[in-house]
């Protein structure tokens, strides 16, 4: 997460740039910084906020971490939709804790993004105006209680598969945020699995509800790993920078292999007639993914795109008076009202 050091001269080159002193090994100029950066990445060292980094590396990280943070807080909506209708106090308490965790994950990630020289306000503004994206998966509706289980098992399961390698990401604050997120994510997946298991073993109607939820969430979950490797715009560069450690297809294959036996234990099927074990490859073969649907949802034509963003904007606007009141209270009691740091706007 953000370190204090990040907030003073984030964005300025390390290794003696500003005052014209020599870079590493007596070199001067950007080449020396680039070489120092490349060497750090090659040696599997972490890049920290005040280190020099290529502009494109910084931009890629801001884009990815922001999208990740936005996904966490938009992801609160489909599940929060069921809090008041949870079937027992136990399930309600679990769901509230989970939704609260998602808010926490968003905050860890916003902090990490801010170490790169952006501000919380800018990030939220870009989310609200559609200039930054969040994961397409959250544009699907949660139609029944079983969807809460399917999200925990499949959506959080896919997220974990994606996120575990990010704990070794080359950018220190992002990697540290992911360690914390991954520790908490395991509960999310297990509660979803347990919820589906209870339904699957329940009445025929409950079993059918669980199966229906899995049928609807399976393919969108596979799309969470992003486009196939040969069509993924950012993959190769991100892997060279060690932001990303495994390709989209590799992670997707890993996820399918994990889910097949888990579905069997649930007594549910996965909605893919082509799904079968391939002895030769040592992996499951699975059917083609409908990338047209993926692109449509990404473009904003998913079932819930508009609703998610308008709810998010509404929550932000309706919370304005709370933020103003807190600021007024702080101003009254500290004199200045800004007793802390100068905020996230760093040059």
């Amino acid at each position: 997460m953000a370190t204090a050091a990040a907030h003073q001269t984030a964005g300025t080159p390390a290794y003696g740039a500003q005052d014209g002193t020599a870079g590493p090994a007596g070199d001067t100029g950007t080449d020396a910084y680039q070489r120092a950066f490349d060497a750090a990445v090659a040696a599997d060292e972490r890049i920290e906020p005040r280190d020099w980094m290529p502009d494109a590396y910084r931009a890629t990280l801001v884009r990815q971490i922001a999208q990740h943070a936005h996904s966490e807080i938009i992801g609160m909506q489909p599940e929060a939709n069921w809090i008041t209708r949870a079937p027992s106090l136990r399930r309600k308490a679990i769901l509230m804790a989970k939704v609260q965790d998602e808010a926490g994950h968003g905050l860890y990630l916003y902090s990490a993004a801010e170490t790169l020289g952006t501000s919380r306000e800018e990030l939220l503004d870009k989310l609200h105006s559609g200039r930054q994206k969040y994961s397409s998966i959250f544009n699907y509706p949660t139609l029944t209680w079983a969807d809460v289980g399917a999200i925990g098992w499949l959506v959080d399961g896919a997220a974990i598969t994606n996120q575990v390698p990010l704990c070794r990401c080359s950018y220190g604050p992002y990697a540290r945020a992911m360690v914390r997120v991954c520790k908490e994510e395991s509960f999310h997946q297990r509660q979803g699995y347990e919820l589906l298991l209870a339904l699957s073993r329940g009445t025929p109607e409950q079993h059918a509800m669980a199966q229906d939820a899995v049928n609807r969430w399976w393919w969108p979950s596979l799309m969470m790993f992003g486009p196939p490797d040969d069509e993924s715009a950012h993959s190769a560069q991100s892997m060279a920078w060690k932001i990303k450690r495994h390709s989209n297809d590799e992670l997707r294959r890993r996820f399918v292999d994990i889910c097949v036996p888990q579905a069997e234990s649930l007594g549910l099927t996965l909605p893919d007639p082509d799904l079968k074990w391939n002895e030769e490859r040592g992996h499951h073969d699975f059917g083609p993914i409908d990338w047209t649907e993926f692109r449509e949802v990404l473009k904003g034509n998913g079932p819930c795109n508009e609703q998610r963003i308008s709810q998010r904007r509404q929550a932000h606007d309706e919370g304005a008076w709370v933020r103003e009141a807190a600021a007024a209270h702080a101003a009254k009691h500290t004199g200045a009202g800004r007793s802390g740091g100068t905020g996230a706007t760093r040059s």
Binding site: T3, E121, A320, R323, E324, A327, G340, G341, A344
Partner: peptide
């Protein structure tokens, strides 16, 4: 204050 981020704190 409406258009400004709150100050940052280290925990």
């Amino acid at each position: 204050m409406t258009n400004t981020d709150w100050p940052l704190w280290e925990v």
